[in-house]
Amino acid sequence: MLLMLLLVGGMALTNLYSSTYIADTGAASLFYKQLIFFTAGLGMILLILTQEYERVVKLGYVLYGLVLLLLLYTLLFVKAIAGAQRWIDLGFFNLQPSEPAKLALILVLAACYANTDVAGGYRLRDLIKPAILTVLPFVLIAKQPDLGTALICAIVFVSMTLFVRLRWATLSILSGTGLLCIFVGWKFLLKEYQRKRIETFLNPEGDLMNHGYQIMQSKIAVGSGKIFGKGFMEGTQGHLHFLPERHTDFAFAVWGEEWGFAGSVFFLSCYFFMLIWGVNVAMSAKDKLGSILAFGCTMLIFWQAVINLFMIMGLLPVVGVPLPMFSYGGSSLLTNMAAIGIIMSVRMRSFPSATT
Rank of each mutant, 00 (worst) to 15 (best):
G235L: 09
E258W: 08
G41D: 01
G330F: 12
V158C: 14
V139G: 04
V158F: 14
F77V: 04
L59E: 03
C270W: 14
C112E: 10
V281F: 07
T298L: 01
L140G: 13
G26S: 01
K226Q: 10
F188V: 11
M1W: 12
I343S: 07
M299Y: 11
S269K: 00
T177P: 00
T25V: 13
L300H: 03
S327I: 07
L240K: 13
S353R: 14
S19I: 13
L47H: 03
F261S: 09
Q304C: 08
F261C: 13
S172R: 14
S29K: 12
L30N: 11
W186A: 09
G83Y: 13
G43P: 00
A12Y: 08
N280W: 13
G9Q: 11
F250N: 02
S29I: 13
D117R: 14
W186V: 11
S172Y: 04
L105T: 01
G60R: 01
V306H: 01
G231D: 08
Y113I: 05
L243V: 05
V319T: 15
L275I: 15
R167H: 13
Q237G: 07
M4R: 13
I48K: 06
V67D: 10
L309E: 12
A28V: 02
V184L: 15
M313P: 04
Q237L: 09
T200I: 11
I106M: 03
W259F: 15
E54D: 11
N203G: 04
E257N: 06
L147W: 04
S353I: 14
S284D: 13
S327C: 05
V254D: 05
D207V: 02
A285T: 10
L133S: 02
L334V: 11
K102G: 00
T177S: 15
N336P: 02
F261V: 14
P100L: 09
P97V: 05
K226H: 10
Q237C: 05
H239S: 05
L309T: 12
V8F: 10
P204L: 09
I106R: 01
V8R: 00
D249E: 07
V254N: 08
A154D: 10
S18F: 07
T14S: 13
L162N: 03
G185T: 15
R246W: 08
S331V: 03
P97Q: 10
G91C: 11
M313R: 09
I128A: 15
A27N: 05
L174N: 06
R246F: 08
V279R: 02
A12P: 06
S224G: 07
S98K: 02
I22M: 11
A294S: 13
V164H: 03
P97H: 07
W168K: 14
D287W: 09
I342W: 03
F310V: 12
M44V: 15
P352I: 11
P244H: 12
M299A: 08
K219L: 15
V135L: 15
M160D: 00
G43N: 00
S327T: 05
V118C: 04
L63C: 01
G229Y: 04
V135N: 07
L189E: 08
G330A: 12
P100Q: 06
P324K: 06
L293N: 00
W186D: 09
I340H: 04
N308G: 07
D207F: 14
I342F: 07
A111Y: 01
I141W: 05
A12I: 07
F38R: 05
L333G: 05
T161L: 06
K102C: 00
G43K: 01
V281I: 15
F37Q: 00
F232Q: 09
I198F: 10
R86G: 01
G235W: 09
